[in-house]
Computed example of a mutant assay.
Amino acid sequence: MDISTLAVFIPACFALNMAPGPNNLLSISNATRYGFVRACMGGAGRLLAFAIMIALAAVGLTAVLHTSEWLFHVIKIVGAAYLFYLAVQLWRTHPQDQGDMNAVSASMWSLARQEFLVAIGNPKAILLFTAFLPQFIDHASAVTHQFAVLGALFLALECIAISLYGYMGVHARRLFARPSGKRLFNRICAGLLAGAASVLLLSRRA
């Protein structure tokens, strides 16, 4: 893989990583509620989901999603339902429960599972890898190796995105320090998650 390909891939890929989708909204919300470290560790669930999607794209299994309207809709509805569930939970969160991050019972495992389910329940994210990564593949060379390199770069850049959104969440926590501010921030995030779920429900296969 030549340098010119990577020079185009890396900035384009990072733009996708930084797009304010459901998982990045979760990073902000989790950092606000549980702290920077837990939010970043929870992002491991998202990385696992994306690694699975990249592997599926590499072996061509995502072609099934392109041809199966039924499977696409099932994944879409389940993913949107989970986003609505998270939005309701966040809307109903009491600000007093967020006073001491050390007292929060949410484990890193539960946050990672949450990130994984949000990522894996978005069929558009799965199709993204089949539409985006192949554009940078040279079919005259070893395709599997190139998918591995590009996939590893994508995941590395995703780690940076997780950290940046978590950092934003920490600062948001300081801005909304009072209970009324925390309630407002939680409900803004809940509204954004519900909006993302609505967009997902309205999405169609490319």
Rank of each mutant, 00 (worst) to 15 (best):
I10Y: 02
T130W: 02
F129W: 03
L26A: 03
L90P: 08
T93W: 02
F129C: 01
A206K: 15
Q89K: 14
A131V: 08
L65Y: 03
L56Y: 08
F147H: 10
R38N: 05
S105K: 14
A12N: 14
A125T: 12
V104Y: 10
R174M: 08
P134H: 10
L201Q: 12
G99V: 03
V199K: 15
G151A: 04
D100P: 00
A80G: 04
V104T: 08
Q89Y: 04
T32N: 06
Q89L: 14
Q135P: 09
G121Q: 12
F36H: 10
S198K: 13
V149C: 05
Q146G: 07
K182E: 04
A142T: 11
I3D: 05
N122T: 03
I160H: 01
L164C: 06
A58V: 07
I188Q: 08
A55Q: 10
A172L: 09
V8G: 00
I3L: 15
Y167K: 14
G45D: 00
F185H: 07
S105I: 13
Q98W: 12
L128S: 12
L150P: 00
A206P: 15
M18F: 08
L150R: 02
L83S: 03
G191Y: 07
G43A: 09
A57V: 09
R113S: 15
F50R: 02
V170D: 09
F154S: 02
A152E: 00
M18V: 09
F9E: 02
L16W: 12
A190D: 01
Q135M: 11
G35H: 02
L48N: 07
V37N: 09
I120C: 02
L157D: 00
L6I: 05
F129A: 02
A12F: 09
Q89F: 06
I28N: 04
N102G: 13
A196Q: 13
F9Y: 11
N102D: 11
Y34N: 04
L153D: 00
L202G: 15
L61H: 03
I162W: 04
A148C: 05
D97V: 01
L150Y: 03
G181Y: 14
L200M: 15
G195N: 10
D138Y: 08
L65R: 00
A44M: 09
L26T: 00
P11N: 08
L90K: 00
Y34V: 02
I54Q: 13
F147A: 07
T62Q: 02
A58L: 07
G151Q: 03
F154E: 01
L6Y: 07
L192S: 04
I3M: 13
D2Q: 13
C159M: 11
